[in-house]
Every structure is written in C-alpha cells, then in structure tokens.
Nucleic acid binder design. Sequence first.
DNA 1: GCTAATACAATTGTGCGCAAGTAAATTGTG
DNA 2: CACAATTTACTTGCGCACAATTGTATTAGC
Lengths: 150, 150
Amino acid sequence: MAKNDHSYDILKLDNQVCFPLYACSKELVRQYTPYLKELNLTYTQYIVMMVLWERETVSSRELAECLHLDYGTLTPVLKRLDQAGYLTRERAENDERQLTLTLTETGRELKDKAKAIPEAIAKCMGLTMEEFGVLYTLTYKALKNMEEKQ
Amino acid sequence: MAKNDHSYDILKLDNQVCFPLYACSKELVRQYTPYLKELNLTYTQYIVMMVLWERETVSSRELAECLHLDYGTLTPVLKRLDQAGYLTRERAENDERQLTLTLTETGRELKDKAKAIPEAIAKCMGLTMEEFGVLYTLTYKALKNMEEKQ
DNA sequence: GCTAATACAATTGTGCGCAAGTAAATTGTG
DNA sequence: CACAATTTACTTGCGCACAATTGTATTAGC
C-alpha cells in the first residue's frame, strides 16, 4: 500500500466526531461524581431524581423513555433509590403491570443541595453561553435523528 | 414555595446540556453495535483498534492516555483483544513495567471491513458537515477544559 | 549501594448499560 | 368468552467504567 493512500484516514481517531463526544460524556460524569457523592447519588440516579424533583410522581415507563434507559438498567437503579429512601415504588391501581414512582420527603430535601451543581459543572466545561446553546441543539438533533432510525 | 419560584429551573432535565450529551453518547455506541458485531468488537475495543490501525504498536500507558481510559477498564479489554488474536501484549525490553501492544495480521485485516462504518454512523446522526465540525470543536474544547481541572 | 519515592499495571468491588429471555397483566380479535 | 398479541417489568449474562488497593519495576536522594 502506498504511503500516500489516504483512504483509511476516516478511521483515524482524530477524525472521529464520535470519540470526543464519548470521551466528553464520560469526563462529564466523572466531574459530577464528587458533587453527587455528597448527595449519595450516582449520575444515573441523579437524572432520575431530576425528573422526580420536577414531577413528584412518574411511571417507570415514562422514566425509561425520557432518560433513554431500558429496564435492565433502570430496575436496579430504582431499587437503590428506594432503599436510600428517596422514592417509593408502587404498582398503579388501574394497571398492575405499571410501576409508579413517587418522591419522598427525604428525596425532596436533596433538591436544595443539588441546586449548586449545574453551575459548578458548567464552569468546569468552560464554554460560553452561546457554545452551550449550540452544543445542546446539536446533541438533541443527533439524538432525535438516531432514535428515528430505530 | 410559590408557584412562580423559578430558582429550581436549572435542575430541570430539559435545561441540562450534560444530559443530551450523555444520552447522545450512549445512543451513538448503540448505533455502532450492529456494525461492530460483524467485526467481533465492542465500541471500546474498536477505539483501541483504531489507534493500532494507525500506529501498529503502542504502549499501554499511551493508549490509556489518548483514550481517556484507566487500567481497570483497559486491562480486561486488552486481554480480550489478545485472546481474539487482534493484538499481542508484550513487556517492553528496556522497562519491564511497560506493556507494548502490537497489531497482528488478523487485526490488520479488520481495518478494511471497518472502513465503511464511519460514514454509516455519520448518516445515522444526520448532521451537516458544518455541524459535525462544530460538534467536534466544542466537545474537544470542553474535554480539554475539564481535564485541566484535574 | 541502600532506601524512599515514583511509575506502570493488575486486581477488586460497585454500578451502570444493554441484549436476550422470561413472566404477568392487559388488550384485541374471532 | 377464549385465546392470541401486546405492554410492562424483571432477570440474567456480559462488558465496560472507575475508585481504591495492591504489586512490581524503575528512578531519585542520600
């Protein structure tokens, strides 16, 4: 193969968009960790709590959908949050299949402690307000396009 | 608490930049999966192979650094790639601590099969060339800023 | 040259993350 | 009504991902 064969350049790590996205996502979770440790939460548990802080109660199915998580992941996460006393898990009255999650008082108290986190993380990332907006738009656009494919 | 208290809005899932980034990253890995399955690779194994396809040989330490992975993750991944016959693991001559990874012929053969993947994934994401460029720049910028914090 | 400090890698433990398979409740169809 | 299809959730198995700990080789300080 000739030295100036560039047909494999698309396989170079530096030419991938997916890699920095993947690495950035992991690094973000790592940055959250020390803050969340004070709340006794992991990142995944945190995003579950965010939904509950906003809605007080939600079905397991809706949660799985809006967080893009499947039950294999969600079930043990919800059990741990239940065990920690941050939420309750009950079957829906009208449909025994459905699981209804409800925020507890202990869970609600975390909300105040969590208030400072988003700004701290934003500072870590060091992007301008405009850049944050662009990043938000592009990731949501890609996400939407990809979920349409399946 | 008054209904028009917006001080918690920063905790709404829809107002987070981190969440779509996290969800998008996971969705991306999911999109790769069927393509990589044909090469008998996971996404993490794939990015290891990308480095080897470009460099033929690399030390474990360099790999960990450029992929932003620690040894707890990397060690078992490398063992599996070794077992699959895609690379060899040898101690460096001059320093018994260091692990040197070398691409095998079998590993090199995968490169051709992998060639079509980046374009297929790009199509899934459905962004324009310009948008890909912006996404690349912003994620690398955030990544660089965050790793400076630690 | 001996010991302390450092660097590199492996191991252990915990928690995602998802595919595949299973089970139970509900809904749809004849 | 009976029974097939669907929905919802759980379980199992495997592979990351990382913090914390341990082990070994090299280098630095004296």
